[in-house]
Design a protein around this nucleic acid. Structure first.
Length: 193
DNA sequence: TCTACGATCTTT
DNA sequence: AAGATCGTAGAT
């Protein structure tokens, strides 16, 4: 996807990322679940308190990766959105493995059992991501990139996961999006009927 | 420096 | 319901 694709409101980018393909070498994943961290005023957003060393990529140009370590053990992949100077991003939470299953299994050697690619920690592990991918431009060919794909027929919308510290309004905001028909979605019961 | 805690995942 | 496990942020 061109850089322009990412230079919009995180919620719009999140919706359009569903069904797109996330590729690194032979590993190709179809995105099934995402979360938008918007700007400004989103109290769940890592940038809520301004610029810090960790959230640096989020203030930079759209289309770059924001990769950070969560709970001391899981890498999270975010794609920076909006204009430079705004702190917004989309967290990629789950995907379906379209190719490169053997490589993904190898990378997940330390973890156990299926599902292989549901949940943001597993997804980053499947792609073999770590701090080296922080700031990586997704819109540049080669390395890690996002390619065209078929959009989902129906989309589920619900509150984001793991943000109990945010304001009541932001905790309720339906900014987690998922492909309704996909098996590769976490916390299904938390979506509206 | 010091310390509390987190956009998770697994097993119980 | 809780443990693994460590970088970050805000306070000192």
């Amino acid at each position: 996807m061109p850089q322009q694709f990412y230079a919009r409101d995180a919620l719009d980018v999140a919706r359009d990322l569903l069904g797109k393909r996330l590729c690194r070498g032979a590993v190709r994943l179809r995105i099934t679940e995402v979360e938008a961290y918007r700007w400004p005023g989103d109290t769940a957003n890592h940038c809520r308190a301004g610029r810090t060393r960790r959230n640096e990529p989020m203030w930079g140009p759209a289309g770059c990766a924001y990769v950070y370590l969560c709970y001391g053990m899981h890498w999270m992949l975010n794609l920076v959105t909006g204009d430079t100077g705004e702190g917004a991003a989309v967290l990629i939470r789950s995907a379906e493995i379209e190719s490169g299953l053997a490589i993904v299994r190898r990378r997940r050697a330390g973890l156990q059992g299926p599902p292989l690619c549901a949940g943001p920690g597993r997804l980053a592990a499947a792609l073999g991501l770590d701090a080296r991918f922080n700031h990586h431009p997704l819109h540049v060919h080669g390395g890690l990139e996002v390619c065209e794909g078929e959009p989902p027929a129906a989309i589920l919308e619900g509150p984001r996961v793991g943000i109990d510290f945010a304001s009541p309004g932001d905790r309720k905001a339906p900014w987690r999006l998922a492909e309704a028909s996909s098996k590769w979605v976490t916390h299904r019961s938390r979506f509206q009927g």
